Every structure is written in C-alpha cells, then in structure tokens.
Amino acid sequence: MSDIKVAMVTGAAQGIGRGIALKLAADGFDIAVADMAFQEEKGRGVVAEIEALGRKAIFVSADVSKREEVAAAVDKAAAELGSFDVMVNNAGIVGQVAPIAEITEESMQKVFAVNVNSVLWGIQAAAAKFIELGKKGRIISAASIAAIKGFPILAPYTASKFAVRGITQVASQELAVHGITVNAYAPGIVGTSLWEDLDKKLAAITGKPVGQNLKENVDSISLGRIETPEDVAGVVSFFASPNAEYVTGQVLLVDGGMLYN
C-alpha cells in the first residue's frame, strides 16, 4: 500500500481541472475529483475516464470557498484512496469584467472567496494532512498571466491572482521545514468555456464581434496557437514529479510566449 500516490484536484469536473486530473492519473496517481455539487454528473464522468486509465478515482463534492468543506474533502480523499500526496488548488472564476470605476464590493468578495480563499484553505488542509501522514507533499495552485501583469477591465481577477502569487511565496517558506513544496502555474489563453464566457463579456464592452477579442489575444501568442488544458497539465505534472523536488515558491508561466518574466 505504501506505493499509492493520491492527488486531489479542485474544479476538476471540466476544463483545465479535468486535464490536470487525467494527466496526473496517467502519471500514476489515484485522483480525488473535487467540484461543486451541481457538477457531480460531469465529475463522475471524469472519474470514469480516470478509471479507464487503470487508476482509482472518487468524486468529492466541495464548495472550495468554504474552509470546512475543503478540509472535509481532503480528509475524504485520504481516507477513501489510502494516501494524500498532492493538492492542486485549480478551481477559479473570472468574475466581473468591467472598468475599475464600476467594480462592485460583491464582485470583489465573490472572486476572492473562490480564487484566493480557496487556495489558502487548500494549503492549510493539505499541509495538515501531509504532516499528519508524514508526507513531503506537493501543493500546486492556479495563478495566471494576470498574476504577473495587470489586465484592464479584469481588476478583481487580476488582484486575486496576484494574491495567489503572494500566498504561494509565503506558504513555500513556512512549509519548507516540513519538506512540503508550494508552487503555482500561470496559464495564458486557454480554450475552455471560461474563455468563451470572457470573450462574450469583452465583446459587450469593446463592441467587437464575439470571437474577435479571443482571436486578437491568440494572435499575440508567440507559439501561434491557443493553449489547451493538456499544456497546463504538463506543468502541474512537473511540479508533482520527483523532478521538481527542489523547486518551491515559484509561479511558472505556461502561456505559449505572451509574457516574459
């Protein structure tokens, strides 16, 4: 049983989270697919895909903005899958797309609850479980190119991702004594439903046809194509692997050549 490796991925019912869950399963991890209760049907579909790869998987319902639900999800993953080795704080939202003068208090609170608080709760719960089990675990969180550069009309999202970058640096220093590494991945323009929704919101503000804002952003990518969830998953796979044993406190851009840090 000692060779069991378990990872939990939040927001794993679709998009980038699904891609990460499948990649880690291919790497030999059993997976806790964590997502909101209303995503359970999609989540169980991902569980079936993982099982088809020959790994164990469970669906765990959790609202990651709530500390107690994240802790309970980690406990369930460890108890039902027999270990706990990697935590991927992937869940996130874009939130309000508007000029800074129009940003509401409600929007800031909602975006930070999902994008920032959930990362902190995930770090706390995972670190406690790693220490309990005597594991030198890996914590890997979703940042963004917006963690490196501020983007107009995306103030709540940008602020939240800068916060993830800061929390990653703090946690990596505090948890290093336990052999726990803490890193983050920073995607660019990923071809998922999240960006499709963002493109529609941008169109309403810029007056450009739906699809034009997305095309212009993709045209700015040096490698000349839109990013896939598998591109992101490759970086997460690295952070979860023995190759990243000496890497901590880092935010790694995976954007095809948009920003250079």
Rank of each mutant, 00 (worst) to 15 (best):
A240L: 03
L253F: 08
K5A: 08
A25E: 08
T10M: 10
L252K: 09
E227S: 15
A204H: 04
A25Y: 07
T206R: 08
K208Q: 15
A101D: 13
K129M: 14
L22D: 01
R55K: 13
A240M: 02
A126D: 06
A146H: 05
A143G: 11
M8H: 02
L252W: 11
S61H: 06
S2E: 11
E230A: 15
Y260I: 07
V94Y: 08
G257T: 03
Y260L: 10
D30I: 09
P209N: 08
K129Q: 15
L202T: 01
G54W: 11
N183G: 02
T181K: 12
V46A: 08
V164S: 00
R55T: 06
K136T: 13
A142I: 13
I148H: 15
S160H: 02
A143D: 12
G191D: 15
D30M: 08
K136F: 09
F162G: 00
I131S: 01
A26E: 15
Q250T: 14
I103V: 15
P209K: 12
V247L: 10
I58G: 02
D27T: 06
V88D: 03
L252E: 05
A184R: 12
V60Q: 06
G257F: 06
A98I: 08
K136P: 01
G257V: 05
E41Q: 13
A71R: 14
V164I: 12
N90R: 14
E40R: 15
G17K: 12
I153C: 06
D85I: 07
P156H: 09
A240Y: 02
A98C: 04
K201C: 00
P209L: 13
A127S: 15
E69P: 01
G17D: 10
I50E: 03
A203M: 09
E69L: 14
V88Q: 03
F29W: 07
A7K: 02
V88T: 04
I226W: 14
L133K: 11
N261L: 13
K23T: 07
G95T: 04
M108K: 00
E230W: 05
R44L: 14
T228D: 03
L259K: 04
I167F: 15
E49F: 07
N261R: 12
R138L: 06
A37F: 14
L133G: 01
A62E: 05
N261T: 09
D27V: 08
M258Y: 05
I100C: 10
T158H: 04
S222I: 12
E80R: 06
D231F: 05
I20A: 02
G207N: 10
D197L: 04
P209F: 13
H178G: 01
I226M: 15
Y246P: 00
G11W: 14
E40C: 03
V218K: 10
I180G: 05
G92D: 10
E102R: 09
A78M: 12
L133E: 04
L81A: 07
S65V: 06
A244G: 09
F162E: 00
